[in-house]
Write a protein that binds this DNA or RNA. Structure first.
Lengths: 215, 215
DNA sequence: AACTTGTCCTGTCATGCCGTCAGCTTACCG
DNA sequence: CGGTAAGCTGACGGCATGACAGGACAAGTT
């Protein structure tokens, strides 16, 4: 179902074209890591890719369009985040391990894609539905798993019925995403990387189970 | 200590000049709410303010410079957020009230300044120390108060000693900021505004006290 | 009222990026 | 080898940027 890759004017991209296209995406991705989103210019991306601006516009309507492309492929990769929370136990020592693994996996993923995720975050916050949808796609996998875990605990009477599973799960995921995006920021609060993870895991565990973890 | 307002070329701004300057800031602020940061152009701001681009450049080095100005004044206003958490009780019903008030105040402040806060967030995430500093200034007030509360509970033996107060407080504040910035986003998860606040309050309470709130 | 002084604003200009098109080159295929 | 479609770029009008010099203006002075 992955329709053929097409240029802006409707031609089908061949082997060479796809390579160029990919190169442009790679270079854009790199630029996003090294300079502010606002200052990323088409001409710079093209130069870096050893081609001309006109070529860029053959494959993408504008910078935003290309960014969406990158984000989309990242979102696919991010689907694997589901495994971090789906079908795991939240009881006893296993529960603490689940929380830790979730935090670890989440932070790793976020750090690996931080440049593009920043832009996605901004686009979503600005109300752009396309970015918004991508952000959802990534967070949804984790969010749904967490919400399911909470609902499960509720049905067993271990968590209060009046807790809104979706809202709590969503807030926890937002916390993970935000902290991941400002990891450097915590250093100025005198909080080191290594201390951050257990704290996040603690909060996740508390949020899901309403109990202190058994370590 | 608030040195005189100066133009880029060093002149002191008089009454009229300050008015123009302020008008430019207001218009920029408005533009940030209605269009993506990346697309805000000096010429549009100037037109909206009924003046010329050249005038803009007399008061600000560039768009970013003006944004910093706006952010700075917002940060001052944000200092009042301290009151939301400082010197409050975290025990019993009062504790639940504290958590609720904190969430309410935080979300209100964020919503009122969402446009500029988005940009500050982006700047900070991109590693710009100036934005970073402003973000800190706003969050610090809340963060320190929460951290103090946790430390206080620790000294009374109500919270485990191995909890890193700063890290937990920072994570909670990051959660609040993130959720506030993506309030609309939660609607797609089928979570309504009204349900969000109690969930956040619950998480804050759990994080600070490690106990379920007494309602 | 004319003059002076310092603030304030804008017209204008060189520069550089944007986004598009026509047209050239390259690859593939019968 | 000729046809066809893909791939790329030079060039161009349009617009934003950022700098400057000089004109407009307000307020005080003589």
């Amino acid at each position: 179902m992955t329709g053929q890759v097409r240029t802006v004017d409707g031609r089908v991209a061949g082997r060479r074209g796809q390579a160029t296209r990919q190169k442009l995406l790679d270079c854009l991705s790199e630029m996003l890591s090294s300079s502010p989103y606002r200052d990323v210019k088409v001409i710079d991306v093209a130069r870096k890719a050893g081609t001309s601006p006109a070529t860029f516009y053959q494959y993408f309507p504008d910078v935003e369009g290309a960014v969406l492309e990158i984000a989309e492929s990242m979102a696919k990769e991010g689907a694997s985040l589901t495994e971090l929370a789906a079908g795991r136990s939240w009881v006893g020592k296993a529960g603490w391990q689940t929380a830790q693994d979730l935090v670890e996996g989440f932070l790793t993923f976020w750090r690996k894609n931080d440049a593009i995720l920043r832009v996605v975050d901004l686009g979503a916050a600005e109300g752009d539905k396309r970015f918004y949808k991508i952000r959802m796609k990534i967070l949804n996998s984790v969010n749904n798993s967490l919400a399911d875990a909470i609902k499960d605990l509720q049905s067993k009477g271990k968590v209060d019925k009046d807790v809104n599973a979706n809202a709590v799960a969503g807030s926890l995921v937002a916390m993970l995403a935000s902290v991941a995006g400002h990891q450097k920021g915590f250093q100025s609060w005198g909080v080191k990387q290594a201390e951050l993870k257990p704290s996040l895991a603690l909060l996740v565990h508390l949020g899901v189970t309403q109990k202190k973890p058994v370590k």
